[in-house]
């Protein structure tokens, strides 16, 4: 019916595992209680999305996630008339649905979306908390348990796709970063079941790679990539091969850089 990437995880069974970085949980609870919108920033794969699903579960709210892309427009969020059999039917977009039903609406990588989306976001983020729908003439008032959350990655092309200050100033902001080594290793062990020793080495390697950001690499290895790699290792892959597929090749296309990084992997894991 429509092509939006809407993931409703409210029905997910197992509780999401989340390793807190600081006071973000308390801050989030307050934001929810006082009906304030929240902005999350941080490098890719450091746990922003995971944090949201964890909090949604904790608060018992349905979660509407929209992965924003460069062609996402306001009507993709709000909804549109579709041609039905003999007549036109109004179809709610994910934002409208979240406002009607209540729950968390999470706009992932919001800076990717087209600029007209800010028009519909703005009235929801101030004290009015309304969503006017021009097409149908409705003005929806957000229920108390509605919460708008946006995220973006300031390191990634921040200059080109930065957030406008006027939009940014409407949100409570939280900054995320990669976890300290010991905690990141704990996350990997929990997620994949690899040995503590393997997890420690993976994290050490990732921190080496993060040092190369902006010079040899565009971006450092994310916790997500670490989990992928650890999954391969847990499934019986050779660590060297797993690192190559999970951590090195995803980060660079330059062959000489790959050679150098593989030497680094060997120095960390040892030649087998």
């Amino acid at each position: 019916m429509n092509n939006l990437t809407t993931i409703d995880t409210s029905a997910a069974g197992s509780a999401a595992f989340y390793q807190p970085q600081g006071n973000e949980e308390a801050l989030f609870m307050h934001a929810y209680e006082h009906q304030l919108p929240v902005l999350l920033k941080g490098p890719t794969g450091c746990g922003k999305t995971r944090f949201i699903s964890y909090m949604a579960e904790k608060l018992g709210l349905p979660l509407h996630t929209v992965a924003c892309h460069d062609d996402l427009s306001a009507s993709d969020l709000v909804g549109r008339h579709l041609i039905g059999d003999g007549d036109t039917v109004w179809s709610d977009g994910p934002l409208t649905r979240a406002v009607r039903e209540g729950g968390i609406c999470y706009l992932d990588e919001v800076v990717e979306a087209r600029k007209d989306t800010t028009v519909v976001i703005h009235p929801l983020t101030d004290d009015r908390r309304i969503l006017p729908i021009d097409r149908t003439g409705e003005v929806l008032e957000a229920p108390d348990n509605f919460m708008l959350i946006v995220s973006y990655n300031p390191g990634y092309q921040n200059v080109l796709k930065g957030m406008k200050p006027s939009t940014r100033q409407r949100f409570l902001s939280m900054s995320f970063d990669y976890l300290p080594a010991a905690e990141e290793a704990a996350v990997i062990v929990h997620e994949t079941g690899v040995d503590q020793a393997v997890a420690d080495r993976l994290v050490a390697l990732a921190n080496s790679l993060r040092e190369l950001k902006d010079q040899d690499l565009e971006e450092g290895a994310s916790t997500r990539l670490l989990v992928y790699t650890a999954t391969l290792i847990a499934a019986g892959f050779e660590p060297l091969q797993a690192c190559r597929a999970g951590m090195i090749e995803p980060l660079t296309d330059d062959t000489q850089t790959v050679v150098g990084l593989m030497e680094l992997v060997q120095a960390t894991f040892g030649a087998q």
């Binding site: 080496s208 040092e211 190369l212 010079q215 040899d216 150098g260 030497e263 680094l264």
Partner: peptide
């Protein structure tokens, strides 16, 4: 040289 440079910096060498 190129691979060595990446390796050296990755180990924590002065970039």
């Amino acid at each position: 040289k190129a691979a060595l440079g990446v390796f050296y910096r990755g180990l924590g060498g002065d970039s």
